[in-house]
Simulated scan of single mutants.
Amino acid sequence: MNLYKQLLTENDCYKAGRTIVPKGVMVHSTGANNPWVCRYVPGNDALGYNTGGNHWNRAGFSKCVHAFVGKLADGTVGTVQTLPWTMRGWHAGGAANNTHIGFEICEDGLEDSGYFQTVYREAVELTAFLCREYALDPGADGVVICHSEGYKRGVASNHADVMHWFPMHGKTMDDFRADVARALEGEEKVTYEEWKAYMERYRRELAGQEPTMPELVADAAAMGLTDGTRPRDLVTREECAVMARAAAKTPR
Rank of each mutant, 00 (worst) to 15 (best):
G154P: 08
M168P: 01
A178D: 10
T212N: 10
E149Y: 07
L136H: 00
V190I: 15
T118E: 13
G170Q: 10
P138T: 05
G142L: 00
E193A: 07
V144I: 12
G150C: 02
Y115N: 06
V180E: 00
F176V: 01
A178E: 07
L216C: 10
V162E: 03
E149R: 08
V144E: 04
W165L: 10
T191M: 12
E187T: 15
R204D: 06
L130Q: 05
Q117K: 15
G93R: 12
C146E: 01
P214T: 04
P211T: 14
G208Q: 06
E185W: 02
K171L: 05
F116L: 15
P138W: 02
E149S: 06
Y192V: 14
E107D: 14
A220P: 03
L130S: 05
T191I: 08
L126G: 00
D141Y: 01
E133S: 15
F103T: 02
A128Y: 01
G154F: 04
V124A: 06
Y198E: 11
T172Y: 12
Y198V: 13
A160G: 15
A183S: 10
A123H: 03
P138M: 04
V180I: 12
R204V: 03
R153M: 15
A218D: 14
A221S: 11
D179H: 09
A207K: 05
D112R: 08
T118C: 09
F129T: 13
T212A: 08
A92D: 05
M173F: 14
V190K: 14
I145R: 00
S113G: 05
A156W: 00
G94S: 04
S157H: 10
D179A: 09
T127Q: 06
D108C: 14
A160E: 14
G154Q: 08
A135E: 05
R132Q: 13
Y120T: 06
Y115S: 07
E188W: 06
G224V: 11
C131P: 00
A220M: 08
V155C: 11
I145V: 09
L130C: 10
N97E: 10
H164C: 07
C106N: 06
R182M: 06
G114R: 14
A178Q: 11
R204C: 12
I145K: 00
Y192L: 13
A220T: 06
F176Q: 03
T212G: 09
G208D: 07
Q117Y: 05
V190Q: 15
V119A: 04
E187I: 01
G224Y: 02
P214C: 09
T212K: 09
A156I: 00
R182C: 04
N97R: 01
N158H: 10
Q117L: 09
E205N: 10
L216H: 12
K171P: 02
I145S: 01
D175W: 12
D161F: 01
T172V: 15
E104C: 03
F116W: 06
T212W: 15
N97L: 05
G94F: 04
A160M: 06
F116N: 03
A128F: 03
R177N: 04
T172E: 07
G224S: 11
A220W: 08
V155I: 10
Y192P: 03
